[in-house]
């Protein structure tokens, strides 16, 4: 599956459009990570637990988008956009959307 955040796949020709595809996930952080993060917060620096959590969540949302695109018969997704919104205290939604297309 080819994915870009520009309107085309460079070097390839788009032959068919399938419309919008999207994937999302809502994640909450768990207590253990929170305690570690609070300790790390004293001296500052990277909170690795949170970095991993968000990377995981984005990967899952992207996978869901790819599954949807495959079901339509597409082999690429162009113009991908990300959206993060916090739903409740300690939980946020990651939303990824793009246009499913078929390329040569």
């Amino acid at each position: 599956m080819l994915i870009t955040n520009i309107e085309e796949i460079p070097g390839k020709k788009i032959v068919e459009h399938y419309g919008l595809v999207a994937g999302s996930t809502v994640r909450a952080k768990h207590v253990g990570r929170d305690i570690m993060a609070s300790l790390k917060n004293l001296v500052g620096g990277e909170l690795k637990g949170y970095t991993e959590l968000l990377e995981d969540a984005r990967r899952q949302a992207m996978d869901r988008m790819i599954v949807q695109a495959k079901e339509l018969g597409a082999n690429a997704v162009v113009n991908v956009r990300f959206n993060t919104s916090s739903i409740a205290q300690g939980a946020s939604e990651l939303y990824i959307y793009g246009t499913a297309v078929k390329v040569d």
Binding site: T4, E7, N41, G44, G45, E46, L47, T51, L54
Partner: peptide, 27 residues
Amino acid sequence: KKYPTLQPVAEARFVTGSVVISYDYFK
């Protein structure tokens, strides 16, 4: 979105990078 199209492109790939970083108490 426009890029110099002087050379033919062999491969296009979506790449991401992220980091969560926190302030220290003193800051």
